[in-house]
């Protein structure tokens, strides 16, 4: 019962904050709503018993990525964006039911797969060890190659971000005829 109350609180706060991300006009309020959404999703992870993912959600998402967004917001002057008359593309609303129907289909397929799949073979193993130990042992044995690939993707993304964000030496103006 306590778990239900916590889940309902975190879920309703997540949806409210996500509505704020989608609908608020001022970009500073939008990033505050995004921060609230990330913290509440971490609470949902804690309710579901995934302590490691929840802690990393707080550490990486709610600290690193949010600070990164704020840094970019301070680097780019947004005065022109703030005095624009409309912040929303209203005709985009028309595509929303189609996307929702597609995602409902995905959920239906997922529920079918859940109903025929076996469950709970290693639950005793997990409860005897604790979440972080099980995730670590499976991450570094079964998914070790994927883990190394993710680190490679991080390296490539870092180099790409540095090269894209580098200051050019007026090559675009000079090369035009």
């Amino acid at each position: 019962m306590m778990q239900w109350i916590a889940f309902l609180f975190f879920a309703s706060m997540t949806l409210l904050s996500a509505l704020g991300v989608v609908l608020l006009p001022n970009i500073i309020y939008v990033i505050l709503s995004l921060l609230s959404t990330l913290v509440m999703v971490a609470g949902i992870f804690f309710v579901a018993g995934a302590e490691l993912v929840g802690a990393l959600q707080l550490l990486i998402y709610a600290v690193a990525i949010a600070v990164f967004y704020i840094l970019v917001l301070t680097a780019v002057p947004w005065e022109k964006a703030l005095k624009k008359d409309s912040h929303y593309r209203v005709e985009g609303v028309l595509t929303f039911p189609i996307l929702l129907a597609f995602y409902l289909e995905i959920i239906l397929v997922f529920l079918l797969g859940i109903s025929v799949s076996p469950k709970g073979q290693i639950r005793e193993f997990i409860q005897s060890l604790g979440n972080t130990q099980v995730v670590g042992s499976i991450l570094f044995s079964k998914y070790f190659f994927a883990f190394e690939l993710v680190s490679l993707v991080l390296l490539v993304g870092m180099i790409g971000a540095v090269i894209i964000g580098r200051k050019e030496d007026k090559t675009y103006e000079d090369s035009s005829p």
Partner: peptide, 10 residues
């Protein structure tokens, strides 16, 4: 909501 925001926000 995420996809909605991706389409609607400018």
């Amino acid at each position: 909501l995420g996809v909605f925001g991706m389409i609607v926000r400018r």
